[in-house]
Every structure is written in structure tokens, then in C-alpha cells.
């Protein structure tokens, strides 16, 4: 599916995503297209499981370039995001120099802090990537702490980093940057100002059904309709943790593996843990609620309305 050139219109981008089995609506495609054209990072927000991370994956796949992923977590710092020195090798090198009596302080410092001893982390790899610009996915940035955000801002404005011992490293071709956030906290305005923004919503019935049929073609049409209808109904229920598209896909894949071609109350009760990951939610839905929803989705024509 790899192409030699970037898409030249929103339609072409839609095709490219569809080729990777990603069903994007026009708004998302427009945002991605503009991010590519303007060379800006794209910030994707939305509830868990609506396919934010997937965007970066399919984009890398469709453009035929490498995906470099930086998973954020609390305490993520430069050493894990950009670079670190390989201390073990450096220490060993010093010992060797000492043993062979060639330890010259000036020279040692220069030698020990050369590229040879540098461990490249995702951001640096994205900046030093030769050839086609890679897709740099900065996943769940809201998990990292604010210090890191400030640091990231610096990189995203100039696409360069400074390593004190080595100097400034600048990207020849800036990477395509996709940032995702689950909104566990609000990101800083300064960072957002650098980015284009898109909010990914839960898909409606039609869209989710086409995602399901594209991703799990082995599932029967009837099962796909019922599962999609069921999950759509679940999202209207007051639950602690709403099921995302990835849960829908997991569920239908599991049901297909179990050779089911239709939803019934028992099957739902047995497999509900794939869709709902919270004990209270499962207790609230199991039994009567499941039957009520099943009644409504038994005739998929009516359920989609």
C-alpha cells in the first residue's frame, strides 16, 4: 500500500486511509491532510478506544514510512524520550584506557561523549531519520508531567534538540507528528497552539458497522449488526467506563472465534467482560438489561435508526 508521494488532496488521503482499513470521516481526513501540508503536529483527543493511536499507525503504513512511537508516562524525561549515554560502555572504556595506559583526560572526554556511546530514544531517532520523514507518535501525552510538555514544545517548534556534549541536532526533514491525549488533564495552551486539533468522537452506527466489517471480515453480517447495535446501546447507558471501538472489535473477534453467528443472552453474559472492563458496570448490565438491549437489536434495521 506504500506510495511514493504524499496525498495531494483530501480525497486521496481518504483513499490512503481506507487502503489501510481505517474508516475516517471527512473532518479527521481534513485535519490530517492539513497537518501534512502545513507541517504541523496533529493533536488528537477523544475517549479511550476511539482509534487515536491507530491514526498514526495507518498513516505510517499508508505513506510507507516508519512509525516511531513514544509512549508517555509520569516521570518520562529526556533520558527516555530523546537520548541517554551508554554508561556501562563508557565505564568499560575508561577502564580499558586506564589499563592500557592511554588515558588522556582531554581526549577521553571527547571520545566518551561521542555518537558512538549515545543511546537514541524515539524523539532523537525521529529527528535523525534519513529518507522519508517518519511518523512520530507521541502517545497519551496527558500522562507525562508538565515539565516534559514544556520540553516537547521546544522540540516541536524547531525540530531540533541540543545535547550539551555533542551540540545541536536538527532534523533534515521534520517528522510527521501525531500527539494523542485522553484528557486526563488539559494540555498546555502553548503546546496546543503549535498543533492542529481534532476531537475523535464515538462513531455512529453506520460508521462503526463499516469499521467492524472492514476489520473482522470473517464475522457474519448479522452478528456484526447485532454487536454494533448492542455496543451503540451500551454507550447510551450510564456506565463508568464506556466501551470504545477497540472493545467492539475485540468482542466481535472473540465471538467469531467462538463460532457464534448470532447474539443471545447467554453468549452476551459469558463474554461481557470483553466489552465492559468494570465490575460495577458488568453487574449493572448483566441479566435484565442485556435482554432488553437484545430485544431492541434483534431487528438490526430498527436498532440502527
Amino acid at each position: 500500500m506504500a506510495r511514493d508521494r504524499a496525498p495531494r488532496s483530501i480525497d486521496e488521503l481518504c483513499e490512503l486511509l481506507a487502503g489501510e482499513l481505517y474508516i475516517a470521516d471527512r473532518g479527521l481526513a481534513t485535519s490530517i491532510y492539513l497537518a501534512l501540508q502545513l507541517g504541523r503536529p496533529l493533536l488528537l483527543e477523544g475517549e479511550a478506544g476511539v482509534g487515536k493511536t491507530e491514526v498514526a499507525k495507518v498513516l505510517a503504513g499508508g505513506l510507507g514510512t516508519e512509525l516511531i512511537r513514544l509512549q508517555c508516562y509520569e516521570g518520562l524525561d529526556v533520558n527516555h524520550a530523546v537520548y541517554e549515554w551508554n554508561y556501562a560502555r563508557q565505564l568499560l572504556e575508561i577502564r580499558l584506557m586506564e589499563a592500557s595506559g592511554t588515558l588522556d583526560r582531554e581526549a577521553a572526554a571527547a571520545e566518551l561523549f561521542s555518537e558512538e556511546f549515545l543511546v537514541r530514544r524515539p524523539v532523537l531517532r525521529a529527528l535523525q531519520h534519513g529518507g522519508r520523514p517518519p511518523v512520530l507518535l507521541i502517545d497519551e501525552l496527558d500522562r507525562a508531567d508538565e515539565e516534559f510538555e514544556g520540553f516537547l514544545l521546544e522540540i516541536l517548534s524547531d525540530f531540533q534538540v541540543t545535547i550539551p556534549e555533542l551540540g545541536t541536532i536538527r532534523a533534515e526533514a521534520p517528522p510527521i507528528v501525531i500527539i494523542t491525549s485522553n484528557r486526563t488533564r488539559e494540555l498546555h495552551d502553548a503546546l496546543k497552539r503549535r498543533c492542529l486539533y481534532f476531537w475523535i468522537d464515538y462513531p455512529d452506527y453506520e460508521k462503526e458497522l463499516s469499521i467492524v466489517t472492514a476489520k473482522v471480515p470473517a464475522a457474519s453480517r448479522r452478528l456484526a449488526e447485532q454487536v454494533t447495535g448492542f455496543v451503540q446501546e451500551l454507550r447510551l447507558t450510564a456506565l463508568y467506563k464506556v466501551a470504545g471501538v477497540s472493545e467492539t472489535l475485540d468482542w466481535i473477534a472473540a465471538l467469531t472465534a467462538l463460532d457464534r453467528s448470532e447474539l443471545d443472552a447467554r453468549t452476551v453474559d459469558e463474554t461481557l467482560g470483553i466489552v465492559l472492563k468494570n465490575q460495577e458496570d458488568i453487574r449493572a448490565v448483566r441479566g435484565e438489561r442485556v435482554r432488553a438491549i437484545l430485544d431492541r437489536v434483534a431487528h438490526p434495521g430498527a436498532a440502527g435508526a
Binding site: S31, L34, L38, L196, Y197
Partner: peptide
């Protein structure tokens, strides 16, 4: 400025594209 530049890249005759182009540049929080 970014919004003006973004509009150069989309067909502003398509209302939907025009809308999304402005939205992804000018809106930053849900």
C-alpha cells in the same frame, strides 16, 4: 494566519472541508 494558510489547501467550495479546516486550526479543546 495558520487558518488562512490552511484554507489554501482545501477546496473551500466544500462547506464541510472549509468547516473542518477552520475547526482543526482554531479550536484547541473539546
Amino acid at each position: 494566519l495558520t487558518a488562512a494558510r490552511a484554507l489554501e489547501h482545501v477546496d473551500i467550495g466544500r462547506r464541510g472541508d472549509f468547516y473542518h479546516a477552520l475547526r482543526c486550526v482554531l479550536v484547541r479543546r473539546a
